[in-house]
Amino acid sequence: MAKRRQTTKKQKRVVTQGIVHILSTFNNTIVNVTDMQGNTLVWESGGTVGFKGTRKSTPYAAQLAAQRAVKRAMQEYGLQEVEVVIKGAGAGRESALKAVHATGIKITKIRDATPIPHNGCRPPAKRRV
Rank of each mutant, 00 (worst) to 15 (best):
G46V: 06
G46P: 08
G47T: 07
T48G: 01
T48R: 04
T48K: 13
T48I: 01
V49D: 05
V49Y: 04
G50K: 11
F51C: 13
F51D: 10
K52P: 12
K52W: 10
K52L: 08
G53H: 10
G53C: 13
G53A: 02
T54V: 15
R55G: 04
K56D: 00
K56E: 02
S57Q: 11
S57G: 10
S57L: 08
S57M: 01
S57C: 04
S57T: 02
T58D: 06
T58L: 12
P59Q: 12
P59H: 02
Y60F: 14
A61Q: 10
A61F: 01
A62F: 03
A62T: 11
Q63G: 09
Q63K: 09
Q63L: 10
A65P: 05
A65W: 05
A66W: 11
A66V: 07
A66F: 04
A66N: 12
A66Y: 06
Q67Y: 14
Q67W: 13
Q67M: 08
R68W: 00
R68V: 06
R68D: 03
R68H: 11
A69T: 03
V70D: 09
V70C: 04
V70N: 04
K71V: 15
K71N: 14
K71A: 13
R72M: 14
A73I: 01
A73P: 13
M74Q: 15
M74F: 08
Q75M: 07
Q75P: 09
E76H: 15
Y77S: 12
Y77A: 08
Y77N: 07
L79C: 01
Q80L: 12
E81A: 13
E81I: 09
E81T: 14
V82F: 05
V82H: 01
E83C: 13
E83K: 15
E83P: 10
E83T: 03
V84E: 07
V84H: 11
V84C: 02
V85T: 02
V85Y: 14
V85W: 12
I86W: 00
K87A: 07
K87W: 08
K87H: 08
K87T: 14
K87Y: 00
K87D: 09
K87E: 02
K87N: 13
